[in-house]
């Protein structure tokens, strides 16, 4: 197995302690920084697909994401601007009134692993806070809103509409969360929806590359 393949296998197995060493070994073997990074991004994509297919569960996915971020730490000093992102910045948060964050965090990890820089605003995020963050960050290409309570679906819709009406441009809006369907997502005015964290990363890429 080549070093890059080893990195991929250990990342998919969620071995956060082993991945950084293997990444270093791959570098020592003369593998390119971008090659290693792209291999890890592909691996996380594979983990995301397995999650979507119900083959792995939240604990395994969290471990893989942790392994990825440990691996990226080794690469960071070697990356041109110290950042692994190629797809721009994603602002993410759970909507106002809602404190559920596990799904949002998983989506953030998968989106980050797909090549975005992620700015996580946490939970109970108002439309005004989303807008502030869009203004405060460069190169925002995606805004992601999570909602787990049916009682905050209205807040989600309001937020999407306020963001869309703010006059700010250059980004797409994606929404999701347990009670959100693609039909409801469409009524909010969002550009995209995904049912789980694996497909969220796929959709995010698709939206900003379109």
């Amino acid at each position: 197995m080549s070093k890059i393949e080893e990195v991929k296998a250990m990342l998919e197995a969620g071995k956060a302690k082993l991945v950084p060493g293997l990444v270093q070994e791959a570098l020592n073997d003369g593998k390119g920084v971008q090659d290693i990074l792209q291999a890890m991004i592909a691996s996380m994509g594979a983990v995301g697909d397995k999650f979507s297919a119900g083959e792995v569960y939240v604990p395994e996915m969290l471990m893989a994401a942790k392994a990825m971020s440990k691996g990226v730490e080794v690469l960071k000093p070697l990356l041109v601007d110290g950042s692994a992102s190629t797809l721009g910045t994603c602002i993410i948060g759970t909507v106002e009134g809602d404190l559920h964050d596990i799904g949002k965090n998983l989506v953030a990890m998968m989106i980050e692993s797909a090549g975005f820089k992620v700015v996580d605003l946490g939970v109970d995020v108002s439309a005004a806070k989303f807008i502030e963050a869009i203004k405060a960050n460069n190169d925002v290409t995606l805004v992601a809103l999570s909602g787990l309570l049916t009682t905050t679906m209205v807040a989600m819709k309001d937020s999407v509409q306020t963001i869309k009406a703010s006059g700010l441009t250059g980004f797409k809006v994606i929404v999701g969360g347990a009670p959100i369907s693609s039909e409801f997502a469409a009524t909010t005015g969002a550009d995209g929806f995904a049912p789980d964290a694996g497909s969220a990363a796929v959709k995010a890429k698709e939206l900003v590359m379109a």
Binding site: G14, P59, L62, K66, I102
Partner: peptide, 10 residues
């Protein structure tokens, strides 16, 4: 929550 889930895997 996340630490707990990771502990379960690790």
């Amino acid at each position: 929550f996340q630490n707990a889930l990771m502990a379960i895997a690790a």
